[in-house]
């Protein structure tokens, strides 16, 4: 269902620099509030409930999402660059699927 996790960052940064990271993933984020017109029953909740970002295994941010985040969740946050390495973003949804994407960052 969910496809194409995307991350946008600079390719190179200097140590100690604060850089922005932008991420987006395609996901319908079914809130659990909508009613199916055919059966008159609520469509079960199916959202990404956790988003984590880490750099070389160290935590940058963790977000806990509830039903009120838009479909195709988009986030922008900031990383203080400690060294060259790999950025890992991880999305976890209600069905237990885990989506991961990585980007490498070099030191200029």
């Amino acid at each position: 269902m969910a496809i194409k996790p995307r991350i946008k960052i600079k390719k190179k940064a200097s140590v100690g620099e604060v850089i922005s990271i932008r991420t987006k993933i395609n996901h319908r984020m079914e809130s659990g509030q909508r009613i199916d017109k055919d059966t008159n029953e609520k469509i079960p909740r199916m959202i990404i409930h956790t988003f984590e970002a880490s750099f070389n295994g160290k935590e940058i941010i963790t977000f806990n999402l509830e039903g009120s985040v838009s479909a195709d969740p988009y986030f922008e946050f900031f990383l203080k660059v400690p060294e060259a390495g790999e950025l890992l973003c991880k999305w976890t949804d209600d069905e237990g699927s885990i989506f991961e994407a990585t980007k490498t960052l070099a030191i200029s």
């Binding site: 880490s54 509830e66 985040v69 838009s70 986030f75």
Partner: peptide
């Protein structure tokens, strides 16, 4: 909102700034 809690942001050790942007439903 029917579900008033929207999102919780936790900033870890490498977070550069306590600033974040997203899109929400109202």
């Amino acid at each position: 909102n029917p579900n008033p809690k929207v999102i919780t942001f936790n900033f870890g050790e490498l977070s550069g700034r306590s600033e974040v942007s997203t899109r929400i439903r109202l």
